[in-house]
Design a protein around this nucleic acid. Structure first.
Length: 592
RNA sequence: GCCCAAGUAGUUUAGUGGUAAAACGUAUUCUUGGUAAGAAUAAGACCGCGAGUUCGAUUCUCGCCUUGGGCUCCA
């Protein structure tokens, strides 16, 4: 079955859904019901609220009605006739007007007793094909997607040609729930929220903070190798800074309110750029110094609407691996290539595959939208073509998205999908031709003239919270060794091995391995299970056998015998602690 | 912010107009000890917060807060 067949099936099922709803609640106003990825939905205005419990009732009615649906019968009406069909439905009237305007025929489709305004795209034998469906959820949705319009009730559902495919999809949904980073974060005790602290403000536990620290060290070291200068600037500033940058009018809504202190008006920063520009402006610059690459692990504050917050993916304060590259126009292309190389390098280290786990999006502006974007058509054209050329020259797979740019220029976004299939921007590279002008940034060129540089905004590892969320879902919590908050669990079989186990734990820590000694009075089986559930990559088991083969006076890891196994259940057998540490260190070094 | 739903020990859940139950987890002890051993005991919940109805509310009603699924948004 090809794609459009599946879409026909889904859309047909949306008709069936609407028919059932109209049958049960005849005074409902129906609107539209398209096919979407993985299913379909239909938007209604109900006269009274419906709940999840009603879904089953609707499903039953659907099954009953489907039996009588032999076909979708098409007929055409004039606009006036069409409106007469649905006198009390302003939504349909709006649609009819829209179709009439285009001078296309106003078509209806009827099956059973149910008819609807529709462009078409249905299955031939609804009674035989509309079988393997399921209604999934109820949601609110604005009419035509605008928050100024009334809120409708949307019912989501899905349908497949066979029961096996439907079951597989439903199982998939269940599996995705298990990989949800919010569940993993709780199970592995990585982060928590507190009502008293506030929503959208996660707190990392020791283990969660370890993951962030490892990521942070990794990215800082890598950036230093690649010619970045790591700086530190304050997480708040005078509002004037954002008035100068032009951010303030554009992003006022998502910034926290200002604080009046003495004669100053301060505000928490939603981005780092202006601070870095101030660093740049502290001294005059020669073309010989460029590019200047300011990087910072930077805390930022954004007032996200409460309904948008979600685990670690959307938060109100986050740490960004941020940087701003100031360079000449001639250097832009090369610098962007280097940034993309860095991003690919980072992703490879994280175990993410290009094209599978992430993809590039070229986010463009809209020349007509002067409210959202800085007006300078030539500069936009130039910037967009530079970014496009870089992507083409590096043979990157990418797609273009209109109206997704920053107000100061176009960007390349690195898009990642979370377990629920929702795509979010993880990293971003932005071309900025506005800020240098706003801040009157300059450098002295080869002929002694003052010239305006270009700025590239970029995030290499993105914001740590979000990247952690992606990684937790990607690995279902079983992070690679170098990122695991606890790398080795030391498990003595009984109290008799406690002393020896403690020595091993110390030796591991001295070697820079994050180990944890389990001293519970439990059986070895239970300790192994606990460590496995905590997704600890390696376990060291210490019993009499290991202890007896070891010289208890010596602290030389070469002479300490252990038995190890992996969280996957692979028995690594007996070995010296020295060999074991070596093995782990080699595995870790591959990334660093 | 808007629509819908949910909030009960650390976790997952049960339950009722008369202030709560289980499992897992935790602590102590005993018998154990090589890949989820068994037993005993104990601690742990103003049933999200506030108000109303009621003789009495965790349970009903309202408001708020938080969380989840969507919409909108996403520098």
């Amino acid at each position: 079955m090809n794609h459009s067949d599946l879409d026909r099936l889904r859309h047909s099922c949306a008709h069936l859904l609407a028919a059932a709803v109209m049958e049960i609640w005849p005074d409902t106003k129906r609107t539209i019901g398209p096919a979407i990825d993985n299913g379909f939905y239909f938007d209604f205005e109900f006269s009274r609220p419906i709940t999840d419990a009603d879904l089953e009732k609707i499903e039953q009615k659907m099954r009953q009605l489907a039996k009588g649906w032999r076909e979708f019968k098409k007929y055409t009406l004039s606009a006036a006739e069409a409106k007469k069909q649905c006198p009390d439905n302003p939504y349909k009237h709006e649609l009819i007007d829209a179709v009439a305007k285009k001078n296309t025929p106003i078509t209806f489709y009827k099956s059973g007793d149910y008819w609807d305004l529709c462009e078409g795209g249905h299955v031939d034998h609804p009674d035989k094909q509309l079988i393997h469906f399921k209604l999934l959820s109820i949601a609110g949705a604005y009419w035509r997607g605008s928050e100024k319009n009334p809120m409708l009730t949307r019912i989501y559902g899905t349908i497949f040609p066979t029961k096996a495919e439907l079951d597989r999809y439903l199982t998939q949904l269940e599996e995705a729930k298990k990989r949800d980073h919010r569940k993993i974060g709780k199970d592995l005790d990585l982060f928590v929220f507190s009502d008293l602290v506030g929503k959208g403000l996660p707190m990392l536990t020791g283990k969660g903070a370890t993951i962030r620290r490892v990521l942070e060290r990794f990215v800082v070291d890598e950036e230093l190798k690649r010619g970045y200068e790591h700086v530190v600037t304050p997480p708040l500033a005078k509002v004037d800074l954002y008035r100068t940058s032009g951010h303030y009018p554009y992003y006022k809504e998502t910034m926290y309110p200002t604080m009046q202190i003495d004669e100053e008006e301060l505000i928490l920063r939603p981005m780092t750029c202006p601070h870095h520009f101030m660093l740049y402006k502290a001294h005059p610059h020669s073309y010989r110094e460029l590019p200047v690459r300011y990087a910072e692990i930077s805390p930022q504050f954004r007032y996200e609407k409460s309904g948008e917050l979600s685990g670690l993916i959307r938060v109100r304060m986050f740490m960004l691996a941020d940087a701003h590259i100031v360079c000449t126009k001639d250097q832009v292309k090369e610098e962007i290539v280097k940034v993309l190389e860095l991003i690919d390098f980072v992703n490879r280290a994280l175990g993410l595959k290009k094209g599978v786990d992430y993809r590039y999006r070229l986010s463009l502006g809209d020349r007509h939208d002067q409210h959202k974007y800085y007006k300078d058509d030539r500069a936009w054209d130039e910037a967009e073509s530079v970014l496009r050329r870089v992507l083409q020259d590096t043979k990157a797979d990418f797609y273009e998205a209109k109206n997704e740019a920053a107000f100061y220029g176009p960007k390349i976004d690195v898009q990642m999908k979370n377990v629920n299939g929702k795509e979010e921007t993880a990293f971003t590279v932005q071309y900025d031709f506005v800020m240098p002008k706003r801040f009157q940034m300059r450098f002295t060129n080869a002929s002694g003239q003052e010239e305006e540089p270009v700025v590239i905004h970029r995030a290499s590892l993105g914001c740590f919270e979000r990247t952690m969320a992606f990684l937790l879902e990607h690995y279902a919590g079983a992070l690679p060794l170098w990122l695991s908050p606890i790398q080795v669990a030391v498990l003595p079989i009984s109290d008799q091995q406690r002393q020896y186990a403690t020595r091993i734990d110390h030796a591991l820590k001295l070697a820079g391995i994050r180990s944890q000694l389990n001293q519970e009075n439990e059986t070895i089986g239970k300790k192994i299970r606990a460590a496995t559930l905590q997704k600890i990559p390696y376990m060291i088991i210490i019993g009499n056998r290991e202890q007896q083969e070891t010289d208890q006076q010596s602290n030389d890891p070469k002479k300490m015998i252990i038995t190890a196994r992996t969280r996957e259940g692979k028995d690594m057998g007996k070995t010296s602690l020295y060999q074991f540490i070596n093995l782990l260190q080699k595995q870790i070094e591959k990334y660093l």
